[in-house]
Design a binder for these strands. Sequence first.
DNA 1: TTTTGTGCAAAGCGTTTGCAGGCAC
DNA 2: GTGCCTGCAAACGCTTTGCACAAAA
Lengths: 138, 138
Amino acid sequence: MQHIAELLKAHKLKVTPQRIAIFKILYDSKEHPSAEHIYKCLQETHPTMSLATVYKTLDTLKKAELVQEFNVGEDSFRYDANIKAHPHMICLECHKVFDLATMKLENLKKYVEEDTDFEIMYEKIFFYGVCADCKKNK
Amino acid sequence: MQHIAELLKAHKLKVTPQRIAIFKILYDSKEHPSAEHIYKCLQETHPTMSLATVYKTLDTLKKAELVQEFNVGEDSFRYDANIKAHPHMICLECHKVFDLATMKLENLKKYVEEDTDFEIMYEKIFFYGVCADCKKNK
DNA sequence: TTTTGTGCAAAGCGTTTGCAGGCAC
DNA sequence: GTGCCTGCAAACGCTTTGCACAAAA
């Protein structure tokens, strides 16, 4: 908790309970929640927080490069406190979004840059399929 | 044109001028236009076509697997008549979306499947950066 | 005290839906 | 002639905005 406050200060953001709570959810969870989902999670502990605050805070954190935003093809965006570019895997059965930790992406990037005369800043990679759990239950 | 009519018939879709026009735009262009953009392109030749028809048609074509839909982080979705999974490159300066033709993606897919116990159906890969043209003009 | 954030309600915008008339077959 | 498609307008859902009050620095 202390750690999150420091992080916000380090990025010259005012430290508020709302910001800490929202960042904490993103930091602790692996589900890459949407704004709506974060809002619902906070109903218990922060019943007065509005959806607008969730959106404004996510925008602030995004601009401070503390979270990343992405869209896996749904109506709404998802958020992730891990800002390092890393592939995501989306299960088409249960719609969970998983992280893919280890991958030799550097080679891929270099190969593409050489091939295209494009200067690559970052990439978003999504694999769609069926996760291990859902494969079992079929 | 004939070719597009055949394609629609082959997928058991009724052949209408609207469907032909919309698919033709996607087939001819390399810009991966949004629904709005397709609508505007058709104002000249099909002034009575409604935005709703564009959306409904895109949905129909998507379900028939004649086009693919994706979101590169914008407010709206983009569409592509090339349904083969292929990486896209998004220029952060001019916001154009390019295709990346050649890539040894099969290896990547196999590697990820072995690493994760996930059954991969398809993938969406986006590289963000600065395109050759925009690099020149800086 | 100054500055910035929060909460509410309303607006905005891309997309979807319901329905009546029209067209493909 | 039947059933699906189109076009219009209204509705929908996610996200943003304006504003008054509250909290952080």
